[in-house]
Simulated assay, not measured.
Amino acid sequence: MSLNSKNPFLNNKTFSTTAVSKKDEVHQATIIDYNQDMTLSGTINKSLILFLLLLASAIVVWWLAFNGMNPIALTIGGAVIGLILVVIAAFKPQYAPFLAPGYALFEGLFIGGISAIFEAKYPGIVIQAVGATFVTFIVCLGLYKYKIVKVTEQFKSVVVAATLAIATYYVLSWVFSMFTSFVPVHYGNSLMSIGISIFVIVIAALNLFLDFDRIEKGVAQKMPKFMEWYGAMGLMITLVWLYIEFLRLLSKLNSKN
């Protein structure tokens, strides 16, 4: 994968200029509506559809959780299947029109379950995390739209390097904590742990700029129509990550009270 974006979708070579030459080949290989080019409005519409699907399934799990059902199975199942769909779409982006809605539905199970768990422990935390995610998205979109923040190659390199470092740290921490008595420093509510959460949120937010840039370039390069679903799915992945990190940070702050 290239280093254009850590997002597992938007760093795929499908968003490179070489993908344009494959457009006619993809048209012939599929029967989905690929006879049109990717547009910004189309990507926005697809993003809204995915958001509504995710919200719908999340609400179902939320309702079940607060009516006596343990949401753990749906939460884990949604996360695992959602990840599988992401991996498939990363290698087969032409199937994004089918995979993206499925991802939104299964990821909604995960979001609904994890949100219910956090809400039960810290009442009011979910609305705070949702609000923080929404505000962050709007601010980043505004900064990108008005060119206050420009996505240069150096910007990409720094954000991707930081994101890879975070991913590596999380994986190693999980492995060590599973097989040893090691307690990762981002656990608990210490100042160090809170500081790490803030740093991760900043990096997740910066990834939004990379996502906006990839989508804009996909439109400019006249990518095939299915890339609207692909781009929308990639953006949704980043927003889910950002929301989860806000939940983690707010839970640490609430536990100190």
Rank of each mutant, 00 (worst) to 15 (best):
G78A: 10
I72S: 07
T75I: 09
P97G: 06
A100T: 06
F98I: 14
N67A: 05
G82C: 06
T75G: 04
I84F: 06
P101E: 15
M69F: 15
A90W: 15
Y103N: 01
G68E: 15
T75W: 04
A89K: 01
G113C: 04
V60R: 01
K92A: 14
V87R: 08
Y95S: 11
I72M: 14
A116C: 07
A100D: 09
G112I: 00
V80L: 15
W63N: 09
S115V: 10
V80K: 05
G82K: 02
A96H: 03
L105R: 01
P71F: 08
K92R: 13
N70F: 10
L64K: 10
F98N: 06
I111A: 03
P71Y: 01
I81H: 09
E107M: 11
Y103S: 00
A90N: 03
Y103I: 08
P93D: 05
N70W: 04
I88G: 03
P71G: 07
V80H: 12
A116W: 09
V86F: 09
V86N: 02
I81V: 15
G77R: 01
F110H: 03
V61N: 02
I88P: 05
L64N: 03
A90K: 01
G77S: 13
A79W: 14
P101V: 09
V80S: 12
Y95C: 03
